[in-house]
C-alpha cells in the first residue's frame, strides 16, 4: 500500500555524478595560491627558518613556480610531508606539485601514476656514522643497526646493498629526517642512511659535526625532482619549463639582480624569447603570460644562485656542484632549448 509513494525517492540516486577533474593550472589560479608538498624539515632543501618561512633548495623552486603562475613568489602554501605521506598527498590532490627530495623511479613514474618532470638534484645514497665507531667503509657495517626513513627508495637500496655484500643489519624504521637525526644522535642506531645531500644537511645541523663522517660509498642513483600527477600534461609542462628556465638562466648568465636589465637590453634572440622580450609568446603556449620566466628567475635567482644560497660551499652544508654543475662545466644539468 505504501510502495508507490516512495519509489520515486530511489530515482534520486540517478542525480549522483562523478567529480570531473579540472586542470591543475585553473585550480591554482582560482585558488590564488600554490600548494607545494615539501619536506617537513631538511635544512638546505626545505625547512622553516626562524620566522617560520620555508627556505631551501626545493622551497625556492616552489616559489619560482608560484611567481611564474601567480605572479607572486610568496603565494605558496608549503605542505610539510613525510616520506610516507607524500605520494598519497599528491595523488589525492592535496598538493599541486611535490618537491620533496623524491627519487625518480620506474614504478613511481608508471604504477603510482605520477610524472617526474625534471631532475633538480642528482643524488646518491650514503651512510653517516660516528667517528668513534672506527668505520671507514660501508662494507664494514656488517651487523650494524641502521636508521632508515620509511617509504623511501633508500629502504629498498639498503636491503639490496647488504644482501649483495653478504652482510646483515638491523633496520630501525623512522618517519622523517628530524626523527632520524634524533634517533641517530641518541645512539639508537650505528649508522644513518639517506641521500648523501640529506646526510650533509643533517650533519651540518649537528652540534658536533666534526665527530661524524659520511662514508665514501654511494650505493645508489637518486635523481631527485619535482613530481606532478599523471595525466595533466599542461601542468607538468609548466613545472618542467619553469625549472628549465632557471637552468637556462644560469647558462646565459641571467641572475635575479640583472634579469630586468637583461630583458630590456639583450640582443640574444633566445634570451629575448625566454624573458618575453620578443614577439614570440612562449608563455601562452602553456596558458601563462609572456613574462612568466622573468618572474620565476627574479623570485630566487637562477639555478646556480639557488644552489649556492642553500647548499653550496659557502653554506654550512657545503656541497660541491658535482653532478649538478651545468653540462658546460662537466655536470648533468642541461636545459632543452627555448624555442
Amino acid at each position: 500500500m505504501k510502495k508507490s509513494v516512495f519509489l520515486g525517492t530511489l530515482a534520486v540516486s540517478g542525480l549522483l555524478a562523478g567529480m570531473a577533474a579540472a586542470g591543475t593550472l585553473d585550480d591554482v589560479k582560482a585558488r590564488g595560491i600554490l600548494n607545494c608538498g615539501s619536506n617537513n624539515g631538511l635544512t638546505g632543501f626545505a625547512a622553516p627558518d626562524a620566522n617560520g618561512n620555508y627556505q631551501g633548495f626545493d622551497a625556492a623552486l616552489c616559489k619560482a613556480i608560484a611567481a611564474a603562475v601567480l605572479g607572486d613568489a610568496s603565494k605558496v602554501k608549503f605542505v610539510p610531508l613525510t616520506g610516507e605521506t607524500r605520494f598519497t598527498a599528491l595523488a589525492s590532490g592535496e598538493v599541486d606539485v611535490l618537491i620533496r627530495n623524491s627519487t625518480w623511479t620506474f614504478s613511481r613514474d608508471t604504477d603510482l601514476k605520477f610524472d617526474f618532470v625534471a631532475v633538480n638534484y642528482y643524488d646518491g645514497q650514503g651512510f653517516m656514522v660516528k667517528k668513534e665507531l672506527g668505520v671507514s667503509s660501508a662494507k664494514e657495517l656488517d651487523g650494524a643497526t641502521v636508521c632508515i626513513q620509511t617509504g623511501t627508495t633508500t629502504e629498498l637500496n639498503l636491503a639490496d646493498f647488504f644482501k649483495s655484500n653478504n652482510m646483515s643489519y638491523t633496520p630501525v624504521t623512522i618517519a622523517d629526517d628530524s626523527e632520524g637525526q634524533r634517533q641517530y644522535v641518541a645512539g639508537a642506531c650505528d649508522a644513518y642512511t639517506t641521500d648523501a645531500s640529506g646526510l650533509a644537511a643533517v650533519r651540518a645541523t649537528l652540534p658536533d659535526a666534526e665527530n661524524h663522517i659520511i662514508l665514501p660509498e654511494i650505493i645508489s642513483k637518486e635523481p631527485l625532482g619535482p613530481v606532478v600527477r599523471h595525466g595533466d600534461n599542461n601542468w607538468g609542462d609548466i613545472v618542467r619549463w619553469t625549472y628549465y628556465a632557471l637552468v637556462s638562466a644560469e647558462e646565459n648568465g641571467i641572475t635575479a639582480a640583472n634579469v630586468e636589465e637583461t630583458a630590456s637590453t639583450t640582443t640574444n634572440p633566445e634570451i629575448k624569447r625566454l624573458l618575453g622580450a620578443s614577439d614570440d609568446n612562449l608563455g601562452a603556449m602553456m596558458g601563462l603570460d609572456k613574462e612568466w620566466a622573468k618572474r620565476a628567475i627574479a623570485a630566487q635567482g637562477n639555478y646556480g644562485e639557488i644552489f649556492a644560497a642553500n647548499l653550496g660551499e659557502s653554506t654550512s652544508i657545503g656541497l660541491a656542484r658535482g653532478l649538478n654543475a651545468l653540462w658546460t662545466q662537466g655536470g648533468l644539468q642541461y636545459a632543452p632549448p627555448f624555442r
Partner: peptide, 18 residues
Amino acid sequence: SYLDLRGTLGGITLNQTG
C-alpha cells in the same frame, strides 16, 4: 617504529606499492 600490521601492510607496503 614498531612494525606491526599498520607498519608493514599499512605503512611500508602501502607506500612502496602505492
